[in-house]
Design a protein around this nucleic acid. Sequence first.
RNA 1: GGCCCCUUCGUCUAGUGGUUUAGGACAUCGCCCUUUCACGGCGGCAACACGGGUUCGAAUCCCGUAGGGGUCACCA
Length: 441
Amino acid sequence: MVKLRFAPSPTGNLHVGNYRTALINFLFTKINSGHFLLRIDDTDNERSKIEFEKSIKEDLSWAGLKWDSEVKQSSRIKRYRQVLESLIKKQFVYPCFETPEELLLKRKSQLSSGKPPVYDRSSLKLSPSNIEKYISEGRKPHFRFMLNHETVFWNDLVRGECKYNMKNISDPIIVREDGRFIYTLASVIDDIDLNITHIIRGEDHVTNSAAQIQLFNSLGSKAPTMGHLSLMTDFEGESLSKRIGSISLKELRHNEIESLSLNSYLSLNGTSKNIILRNNLHEIISDFKISDFNRAPTKFNFNDLKKLNSKFIQQLNYEEIKSRFNYLDLKIEKNAWEVIKSNIFSLSELKKWDQIIYGELLENDVEEIMKENFIKHMPENKFNSETWKNWTYNLEKNLDIKKSEIFKLLRKALTGISKGPEMSELILIMGKEKILDRLKK
RNA sequence: GGCCCCUUCGUCUAGUGGUUUAGGACAUCGCCCUUUCACGGCGGCAACACGGGUUCGAAUCCCGUAGGGGUCACCA
């Protein structure tokens, strides 16, 4: 069975870039009737926070991404220890004694002399007696995985045939000096133990993947199928994850973005399909194809997302919209919603229309004399579907003003703004009394 | 700086050597509908980064240049 994992580190809130990866993993899993694992990558216990873990889960739930199982790396340290021992025994892993400062210095000097900042393996050249001496001095080793300097090949789900020459990267550190494990190894052990079949993540992981493929092999396993998505950038083409205060799901929610709009957008942006609002998550799943994603980086276009979201709001029926504005304490009734819905672009606008339809007097800059005229020519009888037509007809006949001008002024006098839904229907909902009231102000 | 990836309308993209006056969607603009605005319907504008090859023929293949992104952590 197909099994994928989304493996966030709980060091911050989910942002759109992260979430996009989560979504695509989820969709790939579901279209293949697979198992979706949520793995909390919290090996870095200095930066990991339980609040972030909670927040990430909250966001995933909000978005409708149900995970089938869950595991935390911090609960698997014992297992990692075991595997580390075996790797040391087999000499796939070697101890190193450089301090972080020394390494940094090394990199800097390599870089400034035009060389790639790749670790020179000097610790590998240490004699056993040297190592003993270091340890007796109280120095603690960190461990690196010894890369095989050949070319690694893999067939990537989105990038096709890929290869990477391992000479270009450093032997990855897999255990810190203080004994804490680093994600590189932990992730591979988990993927093996938990039978992960496909790894889909951002392009920023390609060199990791290359190294990890060797790690899988050294552990006697075949690496899962890899897929590297191109990264999403902001509108200026700047990386989303690097951006300070990059857009979090929380932020999107504060902007009243609904999960269906977000999921529609993210599952379509960067593909050859048109960006449209889907009807539900099922539809998104059944139409998902990983090969639709382009290799070129794509832009996160907030306007496109907002547009989708407007569409979503406009097609809600009364019960659905009502459940969304309960907390806003609005009076809007069913007939009112039907009239205003096509003019609404965001939930927050409901407040404005609630005020216009049910609220008190409004400011507007229509002249008093004009308002008096409006009253004077208002049809006498009870308001009905012909009222607006008759009213504006009367005004046109008696006032010697262009019809379109009458329309605009009357709309403005009654609603305070120059845009909005069909007036002939709106006045019926507002009612004669309120309208008279408003004109008399 | 090394390595990897990318470059078609404003945006997301179709295009795998001739079927292409480069197609669609969104945005934009115009018209129609509506005795206003919006919604809706119809239509227009708008792109192959640049320079060399290869070829009868190139957006499509090759080389180079430029630009963008990623990566090179005792982060994930």
